[in-house]
Design a protein around this nucleic acid. Sequence first.
DNA 1: ATGCGGGCGCGCCCGCAT
DNA 2: ATGCGGGCGCGCCCGCAT
Lengths: 247, 247
Amino acid sequence: MHGMGAGHGMAMMPHTNATENEQAVVHKLMCHRQGGENESFAKRAIESLVKKLKDKKEEQDSLIRAITSNGGSQTGCVTIQRTLDGRLQVAGRKGFPHIIYSKLWRFPDLHKNELRNIPTCQFAYDLKLDMVCVNPFHYERIVQGSDMNRCNISLAGPGGIKLSDPLAHHQKTGDEMIPQKRIDHRPCDIRQNDPRFDKSVSCFSNFNNYPNGYYSQSRRNLEHSIPQPGDWCTITYYEGTNLIYKL
Amino acid sequence: MHGMGAGHGMAMMPHTNATENEQAVVHKLMCHRQGGENESFAKRAIESLVKKLKDKKEEQDSLIRAITSNGGSQTGCVTIQRTLDGRLQVAGRKGFPHIIYSKLWRFPDLHKNELRNIPTCQFAYDLKLDMVCVNPFHYERIVQGSDMNRCNISLAGPGGIKLSDPLAHHQKTGDEMIPQKRIDHRPCDIRQNDPRFDKSVSCFSNFNNYPNGYYSQSRRNLEHSIPQPGDWCTITYYEGTNLIYKL
DNA sequence: ATGCGGGCGCGCCCGCAT
DNA sequence: ATGCGGGCGCGCCCGCAT
Ligand SMILES: [Zn+2]
Ligand SMILES: [Zn+2]
Ligand SMILES: [Zn+2]
Ligand SMILES: [Zn+2]
C-alpha cells in the first residue's frame, strides 16, 4: 500500500544493527526539520519517536516517506501511545505530540489550536483514541478566530525584519532560529529521494533548492549544528498569493 | 500504646486546618535535624514524609515522639510505601528512605551499609516488605568491615579540623555544614517536650543545651536558615569513651 | 468551573564499576 | 553477573488565569 515504496531509501540502506539503523533514520529525519525548535530538542523528539516506531516498521516507513517527500507522497498514520492528559514530554518540555512534530517538520512558528486533522486520518489527536497520529501531513494549519482558514505561513530569510521578541514561542534559547530561504510546505526536490545522492548533503529541506554540491562542502562538517549567530525571523501571512500581514 | 503520649505537644497544639498542622509538624521536625543535609533538602524530605503520614496519625505521633525525645521514648514503626527498587527520591536525589531519614535526624555523616534495624522493628528496610519503616531509632549504626560495631560518631564544632573535601557526602552545596556543639544521640533537654516553651526556640537539638532564652533572640528571625559562612567539619570516632580516629 | 502550565517523584532504562 | 548511580518521561499534583 501507500504507493510504490521503492524510493524512500531506508529499505536499501545497509546497516549492521538496529541501533545504527535507528541513528540513520534519526539523522535523515533531522535533515528535514524546519528550524522551529533548537537542535537538541529536535533530536530528542525525533529519537523518542523513532524509538516508539521501532517495532512498527510500516509506520516508520510512512513517517520517513512523509517527511522526506514533504507530503508529496500519500502516507498512512504514524501513531504513538496516547498519554493520560494527551501531552508528550520531550527534553523536559511538555506539549501535544501532533503539534510537536508538525512544528518540527512543517510549521516552525505553529501556535496553539492551529492544527486540524485531515478527514482520512484514523488516529487524529482530536479523536482521543488510545493511539495518536503524529504524521505532520495528516494535519492542516488553520488560523483560529479568523476567516483566513487557508493561509500560508512562512519564515523569510536574512534581509527580513529582525525580531526583538514579539512572540513567546520565538524566545531565543540558543540556536533556535535558523536562516532559511523559504520553508512553507511545497514538496522538496525529488532528488532527495534518490539514493545516489549522499544524504548528508541535504541537512534542511530548503537547501535542496540549490544544486546538491552547492552547500555540501561548507556544511558537511557542521552536521546539524546551526552556526549563524544572532536570531532573526520574519513571518509573512499569505492568502493565496496576497500578503495578508507581516510581523 | 507507646507509653503515656501526653507530652509530645502536637496533640494539644491548636490548629485551624490540616495544612497548618502539617506545616507545624514539619517545622517541629526541622528543628531536630542534625545538619547532614542542607536545609532545602531536609525540608523537602520532611514534607514528603509528613504528607505520607497524613492519614496515619498514630505513626505521625510515633515519629514526632521519636524525634523530639531523640530516641528517649520507645516508639512504633513509622512506615511509607516501598518503591520497586527501594529508593526514595527527594529533591531530585535518590536514596534509601531509612538512610535518608536516619542521616537527617541521627547520623549526619552516615555512610552506605551502616544501618542495621533493631530486632523489634516490624517493617525494617531489609525485610523487603511492602512498607518500609523510616523511624531513625529503629536502626542502629554499624561500621562495615570493622569490629567497631558500637562506635559513636559525632560532628565537632568550630575549632575542629577544617575539611577540604575528604568524603563525597560532605560536598559543599550551599549551607550543607552546620556548626553544632555536639550532635551525637543522647536525649535532648526534656524541656523541648514541654509545651510551655516556644518551639521556635529549639531550631536544633543541641541548642537545648543552652538556657531556652539564650539563642532565641538572635535566631528567632533566622528560622531554619543557617547563616554561618564557610563549611567545616570534624568527624571523631569513639568506642565507648576512647577516641578511635578523627578525620 | 475549566483549562493551562509547570514542578517533581517513581518507574524505566542505561552506562559504568566491580 | 550484579549492583550502583543517574537521566528522563508520565502521572500526579497544584497554582494561576479566565
Ligand atoms: Zn493520521
Ligand atoms: Zn542532516
Ligand atoms: Zn520500625
Ligand atoms: Zn526550627
